[in-house]
Simulated scan of single mutants.
Amino acid sequence: MANAATAPKSEGLHYLVVRDDIAARIAAGDLKPGDKLPSERRLQDEVGMARGTVRAGLFQLEAEGVIYRRDRSGWYVSPPPVIYDPTRWEGFMSYVEAQGRSPTTEVISAEPIVADALLAEVFSRPPGAVLFMIRRRRYVDGRAVLVERIVVDAALAPDVLRFSLDRSLTSILKTEYGLSVVRNQVSMQPCALTGYKAEALRLKSGLPGLAVQRISYDAQGRVVEFDHEYWRHDAVRISVETRVR
């Protein structure tokens, strides 16, 4: 690690010494994905800087997606991101497993709701129609990477809440209700993870994320799912295959 003698003296830039030093160790392979970083106190002793300066350097690396924090455990090198094509109607469990990773799903809540004006328009249903809202937290290799809210039309899947929703909802809709998606309307934008999204992902509020909204249609033009996903920015890489006409 760099020491105080080699640190730049520009006021306010000392945290970059910490940032650059750790980033160099990761790039060189001295610290590998999943490895735990030295404690903040040890880093403080090694560089001879204030703890606040060390933390600023760590926060910078976190914002860049290079490292992440675990509650009451410390800092770790971020694993490789999951490759994700949001235009495909493919279950999370399926595409994560296909990449040699271990996916798990935790149901936060699952309940009937009534359609407000927005949902009524999305589902082409009258206001007050019964829908189901499912909130889930998704993990890759034991790390929470996204929180999602899925709305399903109760008219198409009338008793879907009786199933175990910690498994693939895609498979349930296919096998139990014969529902298949032929078209997705997808929008994506960067976002700040705040409120329940940051809390659900156990993140410091305000860190960057990726918001994905998807409306999935069957061959009859009916909306099968209306999905909002909020990803950790360091956990996903978008890859979309297109055909040139």
Rank of each mutant, 00 (worst) to 15 (best):
R202V: 06
I238N: 02
R72S: 12
A98K: 15
K174N: 05
D21H: 04
A192P: 03
V47L: 07
A235N: 06
V212G: 03
I150G: 05
A157M: 00
R243W: 09
L207E: 14
R149N: 12
M188C: 00
R202C: 02
V130K: 12
L61F: 11
V236W: 10
P127M: 13
E111A: 15
W231E: 10
P127S: 13
R41H: 06
G57V: 09
V107H: 03
N184M: 08
A98E: 15
L156C: 00
V160E: 01
K204Y: 09
F59T: 12
E11A: 12
V160L: 07
A120N: 09
P79K: 10
I108N: 01
S164Y: 09
I215F: 01
A27C: 05
V181C: 09
L119M: 14
L179G: 11
P103W: 04
V240Y: 06
P112E: 11
K174C: 02
R70L: 15
S94M: 06
A235D: 12
D141G: 00
W231V: 09
S180K: 08
E90Q: 10
A198H: 09
M188P: 00
T53Y: 03
R25D: 14
D153P: 08
M1F: 12
G29C: 11
E111S: 12
Q213N: 14
D20S: 08
L201H: 08
W231G: 05
V54I: 14
V224H: 14
P8D: 13
R183E: 14
Y76S: 10
S205Y: 05
R162V: 07
D85F: 10
S10L: 14
I150Y: 04
Q60C: 08
D141C: 00
R51M: 06
L161C: 01
G221K: 03
G74T: 12
G48P: 08
E148T: 14
S239R: 14
V66G: 11
D71E: 14
S187Q: 08
L146R: 13
V145H: 02
R42K: 15
A56K: 15
L43S: 05
R55M: 12
E225R: 07
V212A: 03
A110M: 07
N184F: 11
S168W: 08
R137F: 02
V107L: 13
E40N: 06
A28G: 07
R143N: 04
